[in-house]
Every structure is written in structure tokens, then in C-alpha cells.
């Protein structure tokens, strides 16, 4: 589980481009492509500056119709997932 001491920020080396309400990304070293759906794209937008889990969840709760518990669990999974894929960097 991700604790709130960890801040996440975009991996600046990634190429990313908005396509309507989604985002397409490419990792320049691996050449792999990634796609973000509208909610994931919103999280990616926030991560232009470092955010911890709670900060992201608080912002999403004001924009999307979701319960705090569900939101926190899903955002946490998402951050773990894209962190593994090196789309975002962690800092304490």
C-alpha cells in the first residue's frame, strides 16, 4: 500500500500527447506505447507537479462521482501500476 510520504511525479523523459480526452505516451528508450483513459489522463495532468496519494484522491473526489474508499483503492493501484512501468517517478 502506498503511504502519503511518497510523492509521485511524471517521468519527464516520456513523450506524451493528448488525443481528445485521452493521452497517448511513448517511452523513448523501450519504444513502448501507453494509453491513458480520461480519468488516468486527469491524474497524469496533476502529476506535472509532485503529488501524494491523498492529494490526488482529494482532487478527483471533487471532479468525479466516486466514493472516497473506491477512489483511493483505484488510484493506489493505478499509481503502483504506472510506477512499475516507469511512467512516473517516486520521491520521499
Amino acid at each position: 500500500m502506498i503511504n502519503d510520504k511518497i510523492k509521485f511525479v511524471r517521468n519527464k523523459r516520456l513523450l506524451a500527447s493528448r488525443m481528445d480526452d485521452e493521452i497517448v505516451m511513448m517511452h523513448p528508450e523501450s519504444g513502448k506505447y501507453f494509453a491513458l483513459n480520461p480519468v488516468a489522463a486527469r491524474i497524469w495532468e496533476l502529476l506535472e507537479t509532485p503529488h501524494n496519494l491523498q492529494e490526488i484522491v482529494s482532487k478527483l473526489l471533487t471532479e468525479f462521482d466516486v466514493t472516497p474508499e473506491t477512489c483511493k483503492a483505484q488510484v493506489s493501484d493505478f499509481l503502483e501500476n504506472i510506477s512499475e512501468k516507469k511512467l512516473i517517478d517516486k520521491s520521499e
Binding site: 488525443m19 481528445d20 480526452d21 497517448v24 506505447y33 494509453a35
Partner: peptide, 8 residues
């Protein structure tokens, strides 16, 4: 075609 589909 919209979104990421367009790119793909």
C-alpha cells in the same frame, strides 16, 4: 475515430 484510437 477519436482519442488514442486515432493514434493507434
Amino acid at each position: 475515430i477519436k482519442g488514442v484510437d486515432k493514434f493507434n
